[in-house]
Every structure is written in C-alpha cells, then in structure tokens.
C-alpha cells in the first residue's frame, strides 16, 4: 500500500473528493443491483483488478502477506472481468437463481493527486455482505487502493487492489466484485 498518510498537501479539494466519493458509491450501488454491464463500463481499458489472498508469514520473512504473483481471487484485466460478468449473466448460472442479495458498503474515502495529471489515488474501506437462499450470509471486510482516471465528466477505474483480512476465505465462493 502507498503511504499517503503524510501527504495532506496532495489531497484533492473538497469538490473533487465529493465527486470521487459519489463515483465509488454509485459503483457500489451498481454492484448491489447486479447491473454488471454498467459496472464494466466504469473500468479503464488497462484496468488491473487484483485481490491477493493473504498468507500468514513471519515478520522477518521477505515474503509478505500480500505478494504479486501468488494466489489471488482476482488478478484480472478487462477481458477477465468481462468473462466473469458473462458467467453471471448466463441463464445456466444455476447458482445465481434465485439471485444473491448484496450490500456493498464503502467508507473511509481518502483521495490524493497521483503523479500523472488527472489521476487520483483513492483509499477506501469496505464491507461486503451477501445473502443467498435462507441462511447463507457471508461477509468480507477490507481495504482498497484505487487509481482513478478522469474521463469525460466522470472517472474510470484504472487499478484496484483489494486487501481482505481472511487468510482462509470463509465462504464457498465469491460471486461479486468488491
């Protein structure tokens, strides 16, 4: 994770912060509503959407909990994201019918100017709660680091890294995005 803690002067102004926050909230609402196509349209062509599975490593180990090139529940480019969405939309995605009920909660948004003009490093925390059938309730809590890029009057997501806390994923599947 980039350490932007001491970079108050690079923080975006209130209006931009508001627009970025609204973008993230809308994204969460699209996912809750399974509006996959509209969600995909928010991705930049060069998106890297990455969610490593953390490993328990001793502090002295050069290998840390979250490492590139290790196990990951998402390590996706745009084509991979399209394929996942294609599965959700198949009539034969039996496990999606009846549908899952989702709540994507986004909070703790901090936004900073990135090195390139018109790009923003955005930190946020999330809670994802999913319910299926009668008593299937799964939740994930974590932190995200995004790279947003200004696009028309809005933004596109160019990079997302999702840090979850569970080293043993406590659910049978992950049938949404975070």
């Amino acid at each position: 994770m980039n350490d932007n803690c001491a970079m108050a002067d690079a923080a975006v102004d209130m209006l931009l912060h508001h627009r970025i926050t609204q973008f993230l909230y809308r994204e969460a609402r699209l996912l809750d509503a399974e509006r996959w196509g509209e969600w995909l349209a928010l991705m930049a062509e060069d998106i890297h959407y990455w969610m490593p599975m953390p490993e328990n490593r001793r502090r002295a180990d050069r290998m840390k909990a979250y490492e590139a090139g290790r196990g990951a529940l998402f390590d996706d480019g745009l084509l991979d994201l399209h394929r996942r969405v294609a599965r959700f939309k198949q009539p034969s995605a039996w496990a999606e019918d009846p549908p899952t009920r989702h709540a994507h909660v986004v909070s703790g948004v901090e936004a900073f100017h990135a090195e390139a003009a018109g790009e923003y490093v955005v930190h946020s925390t999330f809670v994802n709660y999913r319910s299926r059938g009668e008593r299937d309730n799964d939740f994930l809590v974590g932190r995200r680091e995004d790279l947003l890029r200004a696009h028309a009057n809005e933004f596109r997501l160019a990079r997302r890294t999702i840090f979850i806390t569970q080293s043993v994923f406590l659910a049978k599947n992950l049938n949404t995005f975070l």
Partner: peptide, 26 residues
C-alpha cells in the same frame, strides 16, 4: 504465469467453474 492466472480465474472461490461446485456440494 498464464497458468497461475488461468487456474485462479476458473478454479478458486471466485473461479467461474468452482463457484458452482461449492453451491452443489453444500
């Protein structure tokens, strides 16, 4: 690297094949 990504995209908890298996077995 392609195999690492491909196997995770299909056969991990978020994998497009595995997510249906878990539901059936449960």
């Amino acid at each position: 690297e392609r195999w690492r990504k491909g196997s995770m995209l299909t056969f991990s908890p978020s994998g497009v094949f595995e997510m249906d298996d878990g539901e059936n077995w449960e």
